[in-house]
Design a protein around this nucleic acid. Sequence first.
DNA 1: GATTGCTGAAGATACGTTTCTCTGTGTGCC
DNA 2: GGCACACAGAGAAACGTATCTTCAGCAATC
Lengths: 385, 385
Amino acid sequence: MTAAANQSGRRPTASRRLERAGIRDVAAAAGVSITTVSDALNGKGRLPDETRSRVREVAERLGYRPSAAARTLRTGRSGLIGLTVTTYGEEPFTFTEFAYFAEMARAATSAALSRGYALVVLPASSRHDVWSNIALDGTVVIDPPDQDPLVSELYRSGVPVVSDGKPGNCPVTAWVDNDHEAAVLGILDHLSEAGARRIGLLTGTSTDTYTRLSTDAYLGWCHRVGQEPVYEAYPAHDPAAGALAADRLLARPDRPDAVYGLFDPNGTDLLAAARRYGLRVPDDLLLVCCSESDVYAGTEPPITTLSLKPRRIGTTVVNLLIDAIEGVEPGGGPDSGRLFPPRFRTAGTGPPPGTLMPTELIVRSSSERRSPRTTVSPPRPPGEV
Amino acid sequence: MTAAANQSGRRPTASRRLERAGIRDVAAAAGVSITTVSDALNGKGRLPDETRSRVREVAERLGYRPSAAARTLRTGRSGLIGLTVTTYGEEPFTFTEFAYFAEMARAATSAALSRGYALVVLPASSRHDVWSNIALDGTVVIDPPDQDPLVSELYRSGVPVVSDGKPGNCPVTAWVDNDHEAAVLGILDHLSEAGARRIGLLTGTSTDTYTRLSTDAYLGWCHRVGQEPVYEAYPAHDPAAGALAADRLLARPDRPDAVYGLFDPNGTDLLAAARRYGLRVPDDLLLVCCSESDVYAGTEPPITTLSLKPRRIGTTVVNLLIDAIEGVEPGGGPDSGRLFPPRFRTAGTGPPPGTLMPTELIVRSSSERRSPRTTVSPPRPPGEV
DNA sequence: GATTGCTGAAGATACGTTTCTCTGTGTGCC
DNA sequence: GGCACACAGAGAAACGTATCTTCAGCAATC
């Protein structure tokens, strides 16, 4: 054994045949020190270009890949971001939120990757055995319930947390949400303009922010315009309950002539209920529901939907989170770009910064009354798309 | 400074105020060694229950969370599984595969979590900077192209790789795929039974296994039953091209009276094209397409779809991968449960084990002709209603 | 001629675990 | 009384990197 082979301090075992090349092997092959290899590959230190490129060439030749685990241990950065959503059942995300979540997750994944991070999908169950097994630089939480112990612990242990959905009592680094109040008011106005006289609401029994804000906006609007509220609430995670609630709503003696459903499957359920009661849509009943699914472009009739623009939300949430991780003050103020260590931010300096994002109403025939039915639009000529 | 405080060998700095509690702190607080703490918390070693529970209680009190990075570095296991799919654009997964991918990823995530692993979604781009920054125990690859350099490198470096879709020339640990040949033959038979005389195919130009197997099955069937093949191929990643190809197919002089479309949006496109040419579905044209979307339950008429059962695939793929990671021989043979080190498996002992999974044909009105046809409607020229 | 400053790079330490090896004890057995 | 043996636990060596500190050499300055 040569002195050079031993200078690394590595145990001189002969069983290293199949192992991956480490930084030590690169150093030995290039005739430099470990420090120099690390500096050369990471673009740090003061090295002449010649040394740098030589080391890089040797590393390439040996097929050297730095150990992510070792780097994470040393630097405290894993490049991993958690994405979690409250689960009602055994699935990592709920069926009713599926389209929203899928789109949002897709955008979040893209946004993270483009900044060099990767996304890990995790269950919101507070089982530590899976969470604590993963080194996360930060976490995105979708719709955290009030006083979520998981979020609290993450935040307390210094991991930045950004939530999709305004958090109730959770301390978070930042949050992003739709302007649900404006969205509901916009829909109610839209329905009124289409001729609705009594607008009903299909809402949920849970106390999450989305349900609460939307319902409150509806009640406030009713109060202002002097309409008696007409709504049915059901546990949103139960699809069967949704169909029943839709039926109940249309079976009421004070049956509404327009309905907004807060959850994705409401449109289909309301349509089916309307059919049962012989109500024509939109002639007898105007319909809008909140959904990201394109199913409603193909129903008979097509149903107006409110899109929460999950892609925009996902992108924004991830970028806010990475800003916090990297210690960049996002605001874009005068000292934008200034670095500050996130985990040393003093707690309790007021509420966390929140961002409200607009929604989009996709108007289809279910909410457009052919008002004065003067003409029936003629069948379209073929070839027109 | 007491001797006890220094016995851990830790530098006796006073700046440890805000740091997380480490295993050393637990050991000191419990009055035992680091070894004992590790053993107590991991259920290893030989410790009396009293010691074990005392250590656990102290750890709990200090809010101790083991460092995932350190554990990964030491054990070589991260508990992380990569999930990747070929990207055609900037998105981590393609639009045409969206529903399939979303369902598959959801099932894969569930399956992984239930076995204590978490899933990381990664792009198939061979950019090392993101892949090599993450310690992966294994990877699921969806539809690897022939001789994918990414897959090759992963496999070479000892990371188990299981592919969704039979791999072309990639060395993989195992693979799972649908029985595409059986699926296509089943559809062709189904259409024949519904009265189809000339069945067309809407297929893709790419050379991936799915497209190739399906097309070959179609061609073989045509050859057997003596029908002249009628098909149009287009680049599957381009939605606009799909609509054009659907149009081309129905504009042919030898227009088919039934069509199977290999890709998700084909159903909608074919329906639109049929409408343009004044073809009634299913009376003049029988329609089936491969899709996971429930849109086709609501179209007019509802369209028969072939489901690849992505959930089943996702679950199977992940379980196979974790079996390989943990060194469990899956087959359930006589020595099932026997351990073998996966990365020492000799290469070249024949093709990797593959699993074929059945598909499901969801029959809707678009492929059910209401009555035995007595008259044959003559082909109409385009534009005529 | 001594001090300073810069360059290029090596040495050593720490990150926080897991695990292999080893050491004292009491205890049963011949 | 001596031996082996199971028990409870301690010590210390990795795992592979990043980085802080040091150091030799050399040129320029005072």
